[in-house]
Nucleic acid binder design. Structure first.
Length: 896
RNA sequence: GGGCGGGUAGCUCAGUUGGUUAGAGCACAUCGCUUACACCGAUGUGGUCGCAGGUUCGAGUCCUGUUCCGCCCA
């Protein structure tokens, strides 16, 4: 073969950047049918994904790497299958996260958000965004993402802001958005409301405080009450007991006195109270507890807010005013102890509501906020999944989805932040009119006043991301993109944002476009470390995808993420795995390198028609099987299994067996060499296509070389010719089964079994690989197969061809030969001096015993109901096995 | 409290209409630089598929119960 022009090991570092730039420059990332071009064909079927927008100033982590790999896989697969494929990239302004980063920067500068003011703060934030906002896109590119970068969107860009405005106004006009005083979760550190979803409950060691609620009548009687948050006593407006609790029935309707403050509050009866919990007496703080809030509404109690926006005690806290909530807890309790009101304290595990961001303890508070009446939207979103318009993969998440939407509460969408979409509502300072319009108002439509003031709040970031699948395509404008690409196809994202995002996109998609925004939701799992631990900076087990790519290549990382995961299940990632897949990339490279070199030296044409060898037929049949399997797996979203199948085929079937045999076939020269080269090229071409969505770089690079070297090889051209690039090449199409395949596969497997048996015997007898040995093979009915594969046998089992005897049956067993019985074939290895008769006899006896135990098992099986009830083909298979074991046993007996 | 997922080789995991000798990678052992690849090749060791019942001719796979781990919801 000619001097190899390709490096010995795949060099991803120089390849990846070059290929990516070429792909992008060539316009391969764009849909083949594009409304923005003159040759647009509206009838061309589409495949569309809108990217889960990462935080605009965020940095790439494995979660991103996961979704990018998965979506790029889907996108590349669809593109190769002829869809007009669009993957819309973009990012999210991430209200809280970004604002916090900028605030931190301001603090470092010795100033603050409040000091610089709102306008300046926003200017600085945009500056920050411009500076760091492009980073994540570069990092996504490194993963090979084939997004249409010309369609990149940002949730705060002009178009999307218009979409948000339109969505808000429509909901407002429909009466589905309202402003009201409600109980919400308040983050004292951020000084903003957060939604229910943004609160996480952690179990922590706390204390249950028992104390006396003294009756106001001066009788000295009291109701014992237990609480985990004593400071909220300052906001109590009732004590509740169960109506059938005979301990306290007599108190119902009387008054009790709030400790320290001396306020008188009623004792009420409600079945909500659990008699078994604590003392059975419940203090009710309607303004600081969601359950008490409901009780307060029901019993018409006073709502006493006792905390300010920093969670310090306010004027309702009397002597405690100005104290921090936790200081107040201590002080109040001490004061109560002094007043003789304390009964006891006991350790208690409490569920502490913490902010998803930052982890501070959030306070349930009453506050004026904006809400979406979610029920009508939720009902439509439920229906879309129930009637199959949207399918969730894996299916089990549909139950989770139903459960959440069926019990959904109104969505608090206002945030007391500056970075975000400002709520499009103005208040007239003169008449109090509330104005919500698509255009900024200048005069009050009611009184004509020009003293208008816009609501200071911004919208929850998820409000804008909920519009993402259609706002990115131009909605509310009726753009050609929207018309052609919407609804999108698949929403691929992590199951952790099923509620946050997926459900909201479905609700808003149906509400605003009348159509579900996608037909399939594919949920992937979370990436954990190699022992299943969540990655975190504090644990120090974070794997940086950029570092991994630097070290082992993008393909290795992608393949690991894609093949190492099953839909909806968390996946553990270890560098060991990535390393194994880097090796796989290198394997691909080297198989390709060999084939390219081989093809260059092969006869470019043949003088006659193809005369396929058993190995040729076998690999071809296996390849067709592979394509069918991979197609089936892709249809059911089993990408990991599909990748594994290709991996096994390429490494085990193709590289380990076919390529080795092909070397021999090439040595024959002439037509044999020509057609072997053709087979090598066609198999490699097909496998590279199948593999491309998983490992785009190494496959593209190699394919380019293959194409060049195989261009002049007659009969090797793919059905649709050699396309300009692998990424836009056609996906392989499996040939229909022609009937010969099964026999060829079985015949080749027999040859493999014999070769393996000989290799095994050699190793056991410690025959060095360099030593060629003699063999006599009595192949019976399979003789022609072995004659055909004579060279393969010789080479792969390291035999001495000049002494190899292939025959149908043997009359006398050679003296001192090792005898192997495999798949109905007898093999004798006359290993002079290496065979110990006693040892051999023992080995043969062991084999006989094994065969006989199988015979017993199979006879039992075949005489049971199995024979009559199992499918005929299966029974036949077992009968054949039995026959084979019987034959083996008979032959061993003859030798013993 | 309700729901979901997982428990398969030393480790990490596959195993999707139940088909009868359960697979891979890593690790380990022995051997080998045979001109694609030592990021390699050959061979081998290693599993009563959490436990107990059941359905079935046949169960890692379906059903019931149970235990441990994890997650979600309240």
């Amino acid at each position: 073969m000619s001097e190899p022009t390709l490096p010995k090991a795949y060099d991803f570092s120089t390849t990846e950047k070059r290929l990516y730039e070429w792909w992008e420059k060539s316009g391969f990332f764009k849909p083949v049918s594009d409304p923005k071009t003159p040759h647009f064909d509206p009838n061309q079927k589409t495949f569309v994904i809108t990217i889960p927008p990462p935080n605009v100033t965020g940095e790439l982590h494995l979660g991103h790497a996961m979704f990018v790999s998965m979506e790029d896989l889907m996108i590349r697969h669809a593109r190769m299958n002829g869809y007009s494929t669009l993957w819309v990239p973009g990012s999210d302004h991430a209200g809280i996260a970004t604002q916090l980063q900028v605030e931190k920067m301001l603090v470092r500068e010795g100033t603050s958000r409040e000091q610089v003011g709102r306008a300046e703060f926003l200017r600085r934030t945009w500056e920050w965004k411009e500076k760091y906002g492009g980073m994540i896109y570069q990092q996504i590119r490194r993963l090979g993402a084939s997004c249409d970068w010309d369609r990149t969107r940002f949730t705060l860009d002009e178009g999307l802001s218009r979409a948000v405005r339109e969505a808000f106004v429509r909901l407002y006009e429909k009466g589905l958005i309202y402003r009201g005083l409600r109980m919400i979760n308040w983050s004292p550190g951020l000084k903003t409301a957060v939604s229910d979803l943004e609160v996480e409950y952690s179990e922590e060691n706390g204390t249950l405080y028992y104390f006396k609620y003294m009756l106001a009548d001066g009788s000295g009687d009291y109701i014992p009450v237990a609480t985990t948050r004593p400071e909220t006593i300052l906001g109590d407006s009732a004590v509740a007991v169960h109506p059938e609790d005979e301990r306290y029935q007599r108190f119902v309707g009387k008054k009790v006195v709030v400790p320290i403050l001396g306020r008188e509050i009623p004792v009420i009866a409600d079945e909500y109270v659990t008699r078994e919990f604590g003392t059975g007496g419940l203090k009710v703080t309607p303004a600081h507890d969601p359950n008490d809030y409901a009780l307060g509404k029901k019993h018409n109690l006073a709502f006493i807010s006792m905390l300010d926006t920093s969670a310090k005690v306010n004027e309702n806290g009397g002597p405690y005013q100005g104290m921090d909530r936790f200081d107040c807890r201590k002080k109040l309790w001490a004061d109560m102890k002094a007043a003789g009101l304390v009964i006891k304290e006991e350790p208690y595990v409490i569920k502490v509501p913490r902010s998803q961001r930052g982890g501070e303890i959030v306070e349930p508070m009453i506050s004026t906020q904006w809400f979406v009446s979610i029920k009508p939207l939720a009902d439509a979103a439920l229906e879309a999944v129930r009637n199959g318009s949207i399918k969730i993969v894996p299916e089990r998440f549909t139950k989770v989805y139903y459960n959440w939407l069926e019990n959904i509460e109104d969505w608090c969408i206002s945030r007391q932040l500056w970075w975000g979409h400002r709520i499009p509502v103005w208040y007239c300072k003169d008449c109090g009119e509330m104005i919500c319009t698509r255009q900024d108002p200048t005069v009050c439509p009611k009184c004509g006043s020009q003293h208008l003031e816009q609501d200071p709040d911004v919208l929850d970031t998820w409000f804008s991301s909920g519009l993402w699948p259609f706002s990115t395509l131009g909605w509310p404008e009726k753009t050609p993109d929207l018309d052609y690409f919407y609804p999108t196809s698949v929403m691929e994202t992590g199951y952790d944002i099923l509620f946050f995002w997926v459900a909201r996109m479905i609700m808003m998609g149906i509400e605003f476009t009348g159509k579900p925004p996608f037909h399939t939701v594919y949920l992937h799992g979370l990436i954990r470390d190699e022992h299943g631990q969540k990655m975190s900076k504090t644990k120090g087990n974070v794997i940086d995808p950029l570092g991994v790519m630097d070290e082992m290549g993008t393909d290795a990382l992608r393949f690991t993420l894609l093949v190492g995961s099953t839909p909806g299940n968390d996946a553990n990632l270890s560098l060991k795995k990535v390393e194994a897949n880097r090796n796989f990339a290198n394997k691909i490279w080297n198989v390709g390198r060999f084939i390219i070199g081989t093809v260059e030296d092969a006869p470019k044409t043949a003088s006659g028609k193809p005369d396929w060898t058993l190995a040729d037929s076998w690999i071809w049949a296996r390849l067709q099987e592979l394509i069918r399997t991979v197609d089936r797996l892709f249809e059911t979203y089993q990408y990991g299994e599909a990748g594994r199948q290709i991996y096994d085929f390429l490494w085990s079937d193709f590289a380990d067996w076919y390529v080795e045999i092909a070397k021999l076939q090439m040595a024959s020269g002439g037509d044999r060499a020509h057609y072997t080269a053709v087979t090598l090229v066609r198999v490699l071409d097909t496998v590279l296509r199948l593999l491309h969505p998983f490992t785009p770089f190494v496959t593209e690079e190699l394919w380019g070389h293959l194409k060049k070297s195989a261009a002049s090889l007659k009969d090797a051209t793919p059905t649709d010719g050699w396309e300009n690039a692998l990424m836009i090449a056609h996906w392989p199409k499996a040939q229909a089964v022609e009937g010969w395949e099964e026999d060829k596969i079985a015949a080749f497997n027999r040859v493999q079994d014999v070769i393996r048996a000989i290799r095994n015997a050699r190793t056991e007898k410690k025959v060095t690989p360099g030593k060629r040995i003699t063999a006599i093979v009595a192949a019976g009915d399979h003789l022609s197969v072995f004659n055909d594969q004579r060279k393969s046998l010789t080479s792969l089992a390291y035999l001495d061809e000049s002494q190899l005897v292939l025959t149908d049956k043997i009359t006398s067993v050679p003296e001192g030969a090792l005898s192997l019985l495999v798949a109905g074939v007898e093999v004798y290895l006359p290993l002079a001096g290496m065979v110990d008769a006693d040892v051999e006899r023992a080995r043969m006896e062991k084999e006989l015993a094994e065969a006989e135990s199988q015979i017993t098992r199979l006879r039992g099986l075949l005489s049971s109901d199995f024979a009559s009830k199992a499918p005929a083909a299966l029974v036949e298979k077992e009968r054949a096995k039995l026959a084979a074991f019987e034959e083996t046993a008979a032959k061993i007996k003859a030798q013993l």
